[in-house]
Design a protein around this nucleic acid. Sequence first.
DNA 1: CCGTTAACCTGAGAGC
DNA 2: TGCTCTCAGGTTAACG
Length: 287
Amino acid sequence: MPELPEVEIVKRSLQKSVYLRKILKVKVNNRNLRYKVDKNFEKKLKGKKILNISRKAKYITISLDNYTFFCIHLGMSGTLHIVKNKFENKKTNLSFYHSPVLGKKHNHLIFYFKDFKIIYNDPRRFGFIKIFENKRTFNNYFSRNGCEPLSKNLNLEYLKKKLNLSKKNIKNVLLDQKIISGIGNIYASEILFHSKIRPNRLVNSLNQKEISNIIISTKFILNKAIRKGGSSIRDFKNSDGNTGSFQNEFKVYNKEKENCPNSSCKNKIKKLNISNRSTFYCNICQK
DNA sequence: CCGTTAACCTGAGAGC
DNA sequence: TGCTCTCAGGTTAACG
C-alpha cells in the first residue's frame, strides 16, 4: 500500500513520539506476517531505547541502544497507530490504508511505552518486521535495494547504466526496487504522465532526454507527494485529521475514462494491465 | 543470467 | 440479503 511518500510521513510522525523513548514491552499477537516474526523479538526489544528512526525505500528502520536494528515494512495494508494511555479511544493513525474501520483482530504487534502504545495492524499480512543483530547484517540487507530516488544517486549516469541492455518496459523498471527503491504502483503512473512517456515503452527505445525527464519527474512527484502528506485513497480519514491530500493531485491514477488533465487535450485516460498491475496514462500526451 | 507469473492474505465493492 | 467475482498502494520464489 504505502509507497515512499507515505512511509516518509509515517516515519516523521513516529519520530516525534518515540525518539529516545524506551520500549517497556512488546506484545506479539500474531507472528505470521509475510515472514514469521523472530521468536525472540519481544525479548530483544524489551527495555531498549530508540536512538534513531529512519526510512530506506519503503521500510521504516529503527536503531536501538544495544546496537541492534529492526525494520517495519507495511506491505499493502499495514498501519501504525499511536494510542495514548489517557485517551484510549483517540487513536492517532499514522497510515494510509483505505479502510476507516480496522478490526482489532488484525492488531498483530503492540509496542508499549510509558504513556502510550504503538499498534501494528495489518489485515492482509503482507507487511513484516525484521530484526538485525548488528550494523553489518542491517546494511547487508538493504544493499540489495536500488538507489534512493530522492538522493543524488539517482542521476542520468546511474539510470542509463541500469537501463542499458534491459528489455523491460519503463513501468516495470520504475517498480523494480533493485533499480530505484521506493516507487510503487500509484506513483509509477503519475511519474510517467508527468514525464510524458507511455508506460509500455521499452527502455531501450528511450533517448537520453527522456531518461533525464523520468528522473526529474520522479523527484518532482515524490517530493510533491511528501509535501502534501502522502496519498490517502477512498476517503480514509485518520482520527487526528492528518489525512494526506496527494490523492487530490492524481492526474491519471484510477482515472480511466476521465478527461486528460491537460486542458488542451480532449483525450480520455486509458487503463493498461502491465504485469498484472493497473496502469493509467494518456495516449496522446504520453509518447 | 533475464523477465514473467503465481503466490501470499483479507476485505471492499460491483453485479446479479 | 447473499452469493460470486474482481480488485487493492508489495515482494519474491519459481518457472521457462
